[in-house]
Design a binder for these strands. Structure first.
Lengths: 102, 102
DNA sequence: AGCTGGTATCAGCCCCGAGTGATGTGACAG
DNA sequence: CTGTCACATCACTCGGGGCTGATACCAGCT
């Protein structure tokens, strides 16, 4: 199939703060306190964004005592990479076939 | 370098209509009239979205008489694919190193 | 020239979502 | 048990962006 991605995941990643969170989680698994001091955002704001990222299937939670660790879902990112590669390949060959003017 | 992508491109792709336009352009090069009848959106709305896609470097215009053909920028998509692959690889190894609880 | 069809721009409406403060819940330490 | 810390949820404001109608622009045809 070609591009089964729905734009929801991309919309989720389109927010600057959420993207920064993703890049931070790409280096190490962190809990909310770390993310607060890394991003400078309020805890409430971060909690909202983490919920969005979790519901989009991009991060997974791992409770550890009273802390909540977040780690990236590498599979989701790999899937995105594959979809974009597929799209790029299709786009490369689509430059030839041009639909006739109406 | 790791993840030089700014979330702007992802935000642009996060809109459902824009994503549909991208998937349509992945198959063949089209002009605005084709996109209007394919998506069912108003011409004004489409023109706005095409401007956004153009400024994001995702599509390129090719004037042909009084028509304007749009084709995908395969390089931009391939770059996105690479960035996500890099991110996925980094995320896979980031599950090991977990920063200590504060 | 004047007319018609394809696109781009402008001005405005309206709604979704990011951000914030207050509050609730739950888990350890004393 | 009580306080404190980590985190989540609720209620709210407000600004950005998607959508639209009107209009300007441009290329080709008669």
């Amino acid at each position: 199939m070609l591009t089964s991605v729905d734009p929801d995941v991309l919309r989720v990643l389109g927010d600057p703060l959420r993207w920064k969170i993703v890049t931070l989680l790409a280096r190490e698994t962190l809990c909310t306190t770390h993310l607060v001091e890394e991003t400078g955002a309020k805890q409430t704001n971060l909690s909202n964004h983490m919920k969005v990222l979790r519901e989009a299937g991009l991060v997974e939670t791992e409770p550890c005592g009273r802390f909540t660790y977040y780690k990236l879902n590498a599979d989701a990112l790999a899937a995105l990479s594959g979809q974009f590669a597929e799209l790029a390949a299709s786009a490369h060959s689509a430059t030839q076939n041009k639909r006739a003017c109406p």
